[in-house]
Amino acid sequence: MSVDGAQLWTLNQRLLAVVLDACTGELAELGLETKELFVLAEVEASPYPAEIATALLLPKASVTVYVRNLVAKGFIRREIDEADLRRHRLVLTAQGTEARDRSLAALAAEYDRRLARVTPRTAPSCGASFRRCSRPHESMVTSLPGEPLLVSAVTA
């Protein structure tokens, strides 16, 4: 079976768009726009705006706007970083944690509804394939927990 990478990319983008569109109402009820949710969901892993921009592949200026909006909505707050007093780190508020969790639950429920169309036999391999494909290119290890270790060669 031949795999058309462009077609898979297109189908993935379509799935993302459909899921996000289905969740727009719930996000609006929580006071979030789609990209604000992604920024909010990244704050704990990447507490600095520049790190968020890198992790989400967003322009720094856009992240600044989303952060400003999220601060104004009371979802995150800025704190001075004790390790470097020149920097501000972002911290989720209780309201932000609740909004993030409810939003991610809505996204997960919609994905689950769509994944129900995949047979139980093929669902695990589908998930494993997505995890492999979403790793950075520099990653040498290509196996997942419970699988044989596969190391790929780096080509220059």
Results as ranks from 00 to 15, higher is better:
73 K>R: 04
15 L>W: 02
130 F>S: 06
101 D>I: 13
43 V>C: 00
123 A>L: 15
142 T>P: 00
108 A>F: 14
55 A>W: 01
18 V>I: 06
151 V>S: 14
26 E>P: 02
58 L>I: 06
70 L>R: 06
34 T>K: 07
138 E>A: 06
65 V>G: 01
88 H>F: 14
14 R>M: 10
96 G>F: 04
110 E>W: 04
88 H>Y: 15
112 D>I: 00
109 A>S: 10
47 P>A: 06
62 S>W: 12
155 T>W: 08
129 S>W: 11
116 A>I: 02
152 S>E: 13
10 T>S: 09
79 E>L: 15
27 L>H: 03
34 T>F: 05
142 T>K: 10
48 Y>H: 12
10 T>V: 02
52 I>F: 08
99 A>L: 01
55 A>G: 10
12 N>C: 12
94 A>H: 12
63 V>N: 04
119 T>V: 07
2 S>T: 05
13 Q>I: 03
23 C>D: 11
100 R>N: 09
130 F>W: 10
120 P>T: 03
55 A>C: 09
124 P>K: 09
81 D>V: 07
128 A>C: 07
91 V>T: 12
86 R>D: 11
133 C>T: 08
35 K>N: 10
4 D>N: 11
75 F>A: 08
86 R>V: 07
56 L>M: 05
73 K>D: 04
64 T>N: 12
150 L>C: 09
11 L>W: 05
31 G>T: 00
88 H>R: 15
8 L>C: 10
114 R>A: 02
18 V>M: 00
69 N>I: 01
17 A>N: 04
95 Q>M: 11
93 T>S: 08
10 T>M: 10
87 R>L: 11
88 H>D: 14
111 Y>T: 03
57 L>H: 08
67 V>E: 15
68 R>A: 07
123 A>Q: 13
115 L>I: 00
105 A>W: 01
17 A>Y: 05
130 F>H: 08
35 K>Q: 07
15 L>F: 00
154 V>A: 12
18 V>G: 01
79 E>V: 13
67 V>N: 12
24 T>V: 03
146 G>S: 09
118 V>E: 04
83 A>D: 14
97 T>L: 14
132 R>S: 04
50 A>Q: 14
134 S>V: 08
142 T>M: 15
73 K>H: 08
117 R>P: 02
69 N>P: 06
139 S>T: 14
65 V>R: 15
27 L>Y: 11
18 V>C: 00
115 L>D: 02
16 L>R: 13
16 L>K: 10
134 S>E: 08
115 L>V: 04
7 Q>D: 13
97 T>A: 13
102 R>K: 15
49 P>Q: 08
73 K>N: 05
144 L>Q: 06
111 Y>I: 00
146 G>Q: 00
89 R>H: 10
86 R>K: 12
131 R>T: 09
58 L>V: 03
106 A>T: 00
135 R>W: 12
143 S>W: 09
116 A>G: 01
18 V>T: 05
150 L>P: 01
4 D>P: 07
71 V>N: 11
67 V>P: 05
26 E>F: 03
122 T>P: 01
100 R>M: 11
150 L>V: 15
93 T>M: 01
51 E>D: 12
18 V>W: 02
40 L>S: 04
